[in-house]
Write a protein that binds this DNA or RNA. Structure first.
Lengths: 206, 206
DNA sequence: ACCTGAACACCGTTCAAGT
DNA sequence: ACCTGAACACCGTTCAAGT
């Protein structure tokens, strides 16, 4: 692969496509250098270390724009939730890296402002709005982790079916209900459940 | 450190205390061997590889028992939530490992059965119960990740305060409400919000 | 200024050799 | 059966040397 121009953005994007293609374990400085047609140690002239590189990669991933508000706060919350989920799921191998590293860029700030706007449109303000936002955000993050865990393990696709049922009657009895529902649908179901809770907060401001 | 008896459980516990004390990065086969008074390669006689060792460590961590039911389903859901959070937070360096590896032991199965029991006591059943359980679980996992992220970054303790506020009026306006609330308290606030949503599911079974 | 190549101190893992 | 010690193929990172 010819070198072209070598700068932070080019290196970060090469790292991203490498991780998308071969997983997080494939990302080493030497390997990345080879991908860029350069010696691996050259990367250290653009990034202090691997950690700084990963920060830039995550920043690259989260360079998304928030969907336009529609006036319907529930629709806006759903749209923002889907945007976030789609963005993160576009690079599943990086999930744990994105979860661990806080990113504070104009893009992430604008996205959060849009989240606040949707909750404001829902009639929330002050501390109650922050409570709703933090709970909503926890649900988003947690659902992505649970979904990722289910996909990268022995569980059947789009199921959360436990295998160990002997001596656990409730678990056994629920097993028939586990089938036939996809992660996209279940994401919305849980989201609506959280939104019902958020609706109940209206009026309060703590 | 004298060798004593060397078996899977002893090795896993040594790995756990090593990670608790010096972080996940300190866990290497050679280092762990030294901790046990033995050559690192001896561990391979008890575990196929490092992955298998980590599985056992996580299993060790999740060897907790569920609190007894009280008859008050909301109290039970809170108790189970606190038990889970306390268990995971006892080993923060292992959070991302515990999040990624599904564990299916008698202990985790019993804990899940207790969760189902609390939701049954709430009047849920069938698909609606599973929806509630998955949403509740997502919140628990997500809150722990968010909490961990806040603790291991530049943010102030027990705050989720964004630093970038110029041009984001809602973010700026909410900043005064960020102060003075702890993670323990906020965990319960979000949990109650989710439980309000769960309450609304009663009667439905999908 | 930017890249190279060798070097250092580590990894996980394998395997013949010891007891 | 269990542990050792050397070896292999990698790591991240540093740094003198090249251009």
């Amino acid at each position: 692969m010819p070198a072209g121009e070598l700068n932070r953005s080019v290196i970060a994007r090469a790292a991203l496509t490498l991780v998308d293609r071969e997983g997080l374990g494939a990302l080493s400085m030497r390997r990345l250098g080879a991908e860029l047609g350069v010696e691996g140690m050259a990367v250290y002239h653009h990034f202090a270390n691997k950690d700084a590189l990963l920060d830039e990669v995550v920043t690259e991933v989260l360079r998304q724009t928030a969907p336009e508000p529609t006036g319907d706060w529930r629709a806006d919350v759903r749209a923002l939730s889907h945007a976030f989920r789609n963005t993160v799921r576009a690079h599943p191998a990086l999930l744990m890296v994105t979860m661990t590293r806080p990113v504070d860029t104009p893009e992430t700030a604008a996205f959060r402002e849009a989240q606040y706007a949707a909750l404001t449109a829902a009639g929330l303000s002050g501390g109650a709005l922050l409570d709703a936002h933090r709970t909503w955000g926890s649900y988003l993050v947690g659902y992505l982790v649970v979904e990722y865990q289910a996909e990268h393990s022995g569980y059947r696709d789009s199921d959360w079916t436990p295998t160990r049922r002997d001596g656990f009657p409730l678990t056994a009895g629920l097993s028939p209900y586990q089938a036939g529902r996809g992660w996209d649908e279940q994401f919305d179901v849980g989201l609506d459940l959280v939104l019902d809770g958020i609706s109940a907060l209206r009026g309060r401001s703590r």
